[in-house]
């Protein structure tokens, strides 16, 4: 059942993005940025947490989960160290994604030639 929910949720998010892309003059860069902000916004009232509970892994695949993980890292730091801990814990959950993207793209760009 989780597979069906994952399929429907991720497909729905991508479909909204495609409709925005087709009907406005925004570039894909604008749309990914908007979706990250939306993902962080939905976690003020822990809506995205509930979505992940029902949908499972499919909710972690779209870029909205990036905003969700950022805000949760910040809140975890805030609970341990007070208000300054938000700055310390901001990247604690997303560090794996950012670091792996940097490392893979650095080494692979040394190996491969750009194709046009």
């Amino acid at each position: 059942m989780l597979y069906l929910y994952s399929f429907l949720f991720t497909g729905f998010v991508c479909m909204i993005a495609q409709v925005i892309l087709d009907n406005t003059k925004l570039t894909p860069g604008h749309i990914t940025t908007i979706f990250v902000v939306v993902g962080a916004f939905l976690d003020i009232f822990s809506i995205y947490d509930r979505i992940i509970l029902y949908v499972g892994g499919g909710a972690l695949v779209p870029i909205t989960s990036f905003g969700h993980l950022l805000i949760h890292g910040a809140l975890e730091g805030a609970q341990t160290y007070g208000i300054m801990g938000m700055l310390m814990g901001m990247f604690s959950l997303t560090a794996s994604g950012i670091c792996s993207a940097i490392i893979f793209s650095f080494y692979l760009s040394l190996i491969f030639e750009p194709k046009d």
């Binding site: 994952s6 497909g11 991508c14 479909m15 495609q18 087709d22 499919g58 909710a59 779209p62």
Partner: peptide, 23 residues
């Protein structure tokens, strides 16, 4: 636009299912 939206829905859904499968 309708065809594009359906294609995006199916491709995105496939990615979501792949994520759940990998987990």
């Amino acid at each position: 636009t309708l065809k594009n939206a359906i294609i995006a829905f199916l491709a995105g859904g496939f990615m979501g299912t792949l994520g759940q499968l990998l987990i």
